[in-house]
Each structure stands twice: as structure tokens, then as C-alpha cells.
Nucleic acid binder design. Structure first.
Length: 582
RNA sequence: CGGGAUGUGGCUCAGCUUGGUAGAGCGCUUGGUUCGGGACUAAGAGGUCGUGGGUCCGAAUCCCACCAUCCCGACCA
């Protein structure tokens, strides 16, 4: 590609709208432009890279026997009513009407579409297992789009859906996908960690997230055990810490005035006690029912755990008014003593004695509150967030808290959707069975941006060869020198003929500095510099973007050098790959 | 939705406190010079200062409302 024909409006200044490096670089290097919050145009360079990621995904999905198809982005309301998700999805779903007022949505995901297809077109266990996938643009009206493609409202996603006849078969499918994902991300140059996760709105039993380690935001918080490599999303991470049995005598319940001190922090300072002696009382509303959640003052509630405990669809903290009405006191003065509201206790408070709680009267707290005596000892579960340094639930080693970007997610769905939509097949005994399903997503744009996030320096992007938009960029430095230009042109045609994806910076009005800087910015792995070195000894100067290394070569030995370099680099992205084709 | 911030030529920003002719750098156009790490020079083009209302003789500047965008939380590939 000649740059004069290409479209590459690189930016000189730091884009004002971008905060994190990868986002800035994608705008600066002319991969992307924003059209609205969370909605982006892919410019040519970005599109090429995106397609490369897509093709790696295709390749690995096809290897495990998955089949590509394409569902519509627009789907009718009726389909989504069958599963109830027309309502469950709420404001996050982009909705629209056609000219006859029939209602549609822009698909945020495609379980409904695939199950509909399966129930109409598949009949027999003989057709199973089957995995279908697509690479599609999805639409979610995110509460807060962020960081460019990391969380967009329109985004490209690869989603796969599996249909199995038995749990064992699903297990096998799931494992194949799991390995394919590991391979996909590795080939993109990303180190990912598979972590145990909550299954969220999609539903289902088992799920794994594939997370790219990154400082960026706190897109996905997870715990990681450095010893046994237990890794879990913070939402799903099990708390294995328990309080020691207190040796204190139980003292008499005492009501004290605490005036306007409300928060755990304030009360602990005012009463001069550790935060851990105070019982945190939070009133929640789960599908309309009020629940008082109790945990140690220095712990945090894990809403997902609480929600899952009651199989609730919706969870929200009670509003100030609801708290007053239900508990008879304001937030900050409530507690479990003398209340009819259902309570849930975090298991870490077992064994604790004489703690402090709100008295359900504004301005007052109780001292020496004790479980069993002052309130019922019931509904004891793990409802807190795990903290850094706590024992790993598997091996006891202190765990680490880490964060990253979730680039993939695999779910075992079971029969959740096939039952709701009555999607069945006949088993070998002629009996009707629900499909046992799984679904598996990869955020393609997000993966692309994660690559940029992990492969850059102060000058720009350093593409892994597997997804670099071009392999080679030729920089003729003095555009008024016909010898340089002619040679560069010749070299360009030669490399292109030999099958190298080559970009020729043939801009006449760009100075050497501009060409160097743009080349580093857009991050093509190999730069071929045609300038002084060429004028002097007819040699090509090679700069390897990844390492900054420079060397000089005769034109005759260039092809071998390039072939060797690219195959070596590609090898690296495959190493540790012991798995053959399945 | 709660908290914080921003909105001025294509881009990055100054001007606003203290109201009075709308600025800079980069980019763009034309000519000349240059040519290995974001060149120099001369001449140009380009903005109803986010939108609407208000105060005032007069508003980019003060007041009100709205909108958009970014950051922190709830949501998620």
C-alpha cells in the first residue's frame, strides 16, 4: 500500500478525550475515530488490525469444529419475550420500532436467535454436538462507556453457542473452547489468565473469564493465588477467613447516644473502638423484599453473592426513605436488634462477641450486642468481598488482588434457554430432551485495544507480527532524491510481489522526522529506511520496532531476513502450544 | 443515576477572576529554500466562543436552564 493512496490521518497532539495509553494511541495512530460516546469508526489501519484478530479467532474456532454463521443485528421483540429478557435487559438494550410500530432491538447478545434457529432446524442427537459462532456487531447502551473500545456501546464480538446432548459432552465442548481461547489470545500476543467468575445476566452455572492483566481502570477485579494459581473474579471469590472465637464474656446490652455520628469510620472514632468491633448493617432490596445484610465494619458487602444467595433478579441498596420506613431510623443508625426484617449474616462474624450496632433509633447505637441473644443467629453465609492477603480458599497461601480487562467469557448455560424457548431434540431412545448449552464470547475490539495496551512504548504502538496491519514499512527519507525514490519504489514492488504486506511512505511533503515519528507511532514491525546508508553503500537500513535494534543489509539478503524474522516472531506467539488440532 | 471536570478555527490550548475590536502553536492553501528524528520563509484561508434564555448601553467573560464529552462508582465482551 502506498501511503499516498491510503488514509492515515495521524494526530500530532494528545487527543483530549482519551485517558489511557491504548485509547490515545488508537486515536493518534489513526486506527479509530469517535462518533459518539462509546461509538467509533474504524479507520483503514484499525480495520486491518481488527480483521487480523477476527481471522485468528476464526482459525482457532474452526480448528475445534465450530461453524461460522451470521445472525441479524436487529431482532424482533417477540423472540426476547420468550426468555423474559425483553424486560430483564432494561435500559441497556437499544430498542426501535419499524414503520408499522413493530418493536425490535439491536442485539446485545444472541442466545435467543441461536436457540430459535436450533429448535427449528435441528432434531436429533445425531446432529450433536454442534457449536455455532458468529462475529457480529453488538449493541449495549452501557451506563458508562469508557476507554475507547474497552467498553463501547457498539462493539464487535465473537459469540459462540454450543449444543450438547449430555453434561459430559458439554464438558468436552467447554474444554475445547477453553483451550481455543487460550490459543487465540496467545496468538494475539496477549497473556491471559482464566479466572472463575459469576455468570451474571447471561445466567448458567460454571463460567470462566479470560482476563488480560492491566492497570487500566478496574474493569475486572480478581483474586489470584501466587502458589496454586487459583484465580477468581472478586464477585465469585470465596472468602475462607473466619473470625476467631472471642474469649470475652458477653456483656449487658447498653444503649449509648452517638449523636450525628453515622458512618463506621465516625462511630469507631467517637466510641474509640476498632472498626472490626462494629457490625455493618446494610438494608437491601432483593426483588422487592428487604434484607438486612450484616458484616464486620471493616468488610465490604459483595452484592453478587447476596443476590445469588436468594436467586434474585434485581438487587439494589434501599433508599434513605425506604430505610427510615422499614427500620424506623436513618441510614447509619440501623441494626439487627428488635427488627422484623429478614437478616443475613456474614460467616466471618461467627464467634465475635460484644459488637456495636445501630439501635434503630436516630442518634443511638447499642454496645455489647451478641448474636443469638440480641438477634437471631440465622442465615449465615459468605457475603463479603475477599481482601488482599487473605488465605487462598484452595491452598491457604495469601492471595493477591489484581485487576485486568476481560476479553473473553465462557459459560455453561445448561438448559436455561432451551427450556424457556422449548428447544429440544430426540435422544437415542426417541425421548425429547432439552439442548444442553454453552455460550462463549470474545470482545474483538476490546482484544485489539488490549494488544495496544500491552504492546507500546512512548513513541507508539509495537504490533505483534500476528496482527500488525502491515509487516513492513519503507521510509524513503529524502523525497527530492530520485535515486532514493526509484529504489524505494522498486523495493516496494519487489516485496509486495513476494507477498509481504508493505506500506510505502511516499509522501513528498513529509520530512524525515515526520516519517520516523509516524512509523514509530503506527508500529509496523519492520521499518526499511532508505536514506544516507543507501546513498553511501547501497544498503538498506532495517529498524526492528519491537526492540529498536538497527542493522544494515544488501537488498539481496532482505527476503531471507524478513522471512526468518517473521517466522521466528510467529513461533514465539505459538510457543508452549502442546495441543494439536482436535 | 450520584460525585468531579470540561466545552473557544481541523487539533492542542490561552483569553473569563476585573464585561468593551476573538488570540497562539500545530495543521491547511500558494510561492521559494531545505531534506536522517515532528524544517525554514513569505503571503493567505478558516471561529454566530456547546445550545437556549436572562442581566447589561455592551457578554466568550456574569446568572439560570439544557445538551454533549471525559474521569470516579453501580453495568459488562
Amino acid at each position: 500500500m502506498r501511503m499516498s493512496n491510503f488514509f492515515l490521518p495521524t494526530l500530532r497532539e494528545e487527543p483530549q478525550d482519551a485517558e489511557i495509553e491504548s485509547h490515545k494511541l488508537m486515536l493518534k495512530a489513526a486506527l479509530l475515530r469517535k462518533v459518539a460516546a462509546g461509538i467509533y469508526s474504524y479507520l483503514p489501519l484499525g480495520l486491518i488490525a481488527l480483521k487480523k484478530v477476527e481471522n485468528i479467532i476464526r482459525d482457532e474456532m474452526n480448528k475445534i469444529g465450530a461453524v461460522e454463521l451470521l445472525f441479524p443485528a436487529i431482532m424482533p421483540k417477540e423472540l426476547w419475550e420468550e426468555t423474559g429478557r425483553w424486560f430483564i435487559y432494561g435500559d441497556e438494550m437499544f430498542r426501535l420500532k419499524d414503520r408499522k410500530s413493530r418493536e425490535f432491538c439491536l442485539g446485545p447478545t444472541h442466545e435467543e436467535a441461536v436457540v430459535d434457529l436450533a429448535r427449528n432446524e435441528m432434531r436429533s442427537y445425531k446432529e450433536l454436538p454442534k457449536t455455532l459462532y458468529q462475529i457480529q456487531t453488538k449493541y449495549r447502551d452501557e451506563i458508562r462507556p469508557r476507554f475507547g473500545l474497552i467498553r463501547a456501546r457498539e462493539f464487535v464480538m465473537k459469540d459462540a453457542y454450543s449444543f450438547d446432548a449430555s453434561d459430559d459432552s458439554l464438558e468436552e465442548t467447554y474444554n475445547k473452547i477453553y483451550h481455543a481461547y487460550t490459543e487465540i489470545f496467545k496468538r494475539c500476543g496477549l497473556e491471559t489468565i482464566p479466572i472463575e467468575a459469576d455468570s451474571g445476566a447471561i445466567g448458567g452455572k460454571v463460567s470462566h473469564e479470560f482476563v488480560v492483566e492491566s492497570e487500566v481502570g478496574s474493569e475486572s477485579d480478581y483474586v489470584f493465588c501466587p502458589k496454586c494459581h487459583y484465580a477468581s473474579n472478586i464477585e465469585a471469590a470465596k472468602s475462607s477467613i473466619t473470625a476467631e472465637e472471642s474469649s470475652e464474656d458477653t456483656n449487658e446490652l447498653t444503649k449509648v447516644e452517638t449523636f450525628d455520628f453515622k458512618t463506621i469510620e465516625e462511630v469507631s472514632q467517637f466510641l474509640k473502638v476498632e472498626k472490626s468491633k462494629i457490625l455493618k448493617s446494610l438494608l437491601y432490596k432483593l426483588d422487592g423484599e428487604f434484607i438486612l445484610a450484616l458484616m464486620r465494619g471493616d468488610d465490604e458487602l459483595n452484592e453478587i453473592k447476596l443476590k445469588n444467595l436468594f436467586n434474585a433478579k434485581n438487587i439494589s441498596q434501599a433508599t434513605g426513605e425506604e430505610v427510615l420506613k422499614t427500620m424506623g431510623a436513618n441510614v447509619g443508625a440501623i441494626g439487627p436488634v428488635n427488627t422484623k426484617v429478614k437478616i443475613v449474616l456474614d460467616k466471618r462474624i461467627i464467634g465475635m462477641k460484644n459488637f456495636i450496632t445501630g439501635a434503630n433509633a436516630n442518634g443511638y447505637h447499642f454496645l455489647n450486642v451478641n448474636m443469638g441473644r440480641d438477634f437471631k443467629e440465622e442465615n449465615i453465609y459468605d457475603i463479603r468481598n475477599v481482601k488482599s492477603g487473605e488465605p487462598c480458599p484452595k491452598c491457604g497461601t495469601p492471595i493477591e488482588l489484581r485487576q485486568g480487562i476481560e476479553v473473553g467469557h465462557a459459560f455453561k448455560l445448561g438448559t436455561k434457554y432451551s427450556e424457556k424457548m422449548h428447544a429440544t431434540f430426540l435422544d437415542s431412545e426417541g425421548k425429547e430432551q432439552f439442548y444442553i448449552m454453552g455460550c462463549y464470547g470474545i470482545g474483538v475490539g476490546r482484544t485489539l485495544q488490549s494488544v495496544v495496551e500491552q504492546h507500546h512504548d512512548v513513541h507508539g504502538i509495537k504490533w505483534p507480527v500476528s496482527i500488525a496491519p502491515f509487516q513492513v514499512e519503507i521510509l524513503p527519507l529524502n523525497s527530492s532524491d530520485s535515486e532514493i525514490n526509484n529504489f524505494s519504489e522498486e523495493l516496494y514492488l519487489d516485496l509486495t510481489n513476494k507477498g509481504f504486506d508493505t506500506l510505502l511512505d511516499d509522501r513528498l511533503d513529509a520530512s524525515a522526522g515526520v516519517k520516523f515519528n509516524d512509523a514509530d507511532l503506527i508500529g509496523i514491525p519492520i521499518q526499511l529506511i532508505i536514506g544516507k546508508t543507501f546513498k553511501k553503500d547501497k544498503k538498506i537500513e532495517i529498524k526492528i520496532r519491537e526492540t529498536g535494534e538497527k542493522l544494515q543489509l544488501e537488498k539481496g539478503s532482505l527476503e531471507l531476513f524478513l522471512k526468518t524474522y517473521f517466522s521466528k516472531e510467529l513461533q514465539k506467539l505459538h510457543k508452549n502450544n502442546s495441543r494439536g488440532a482436535i
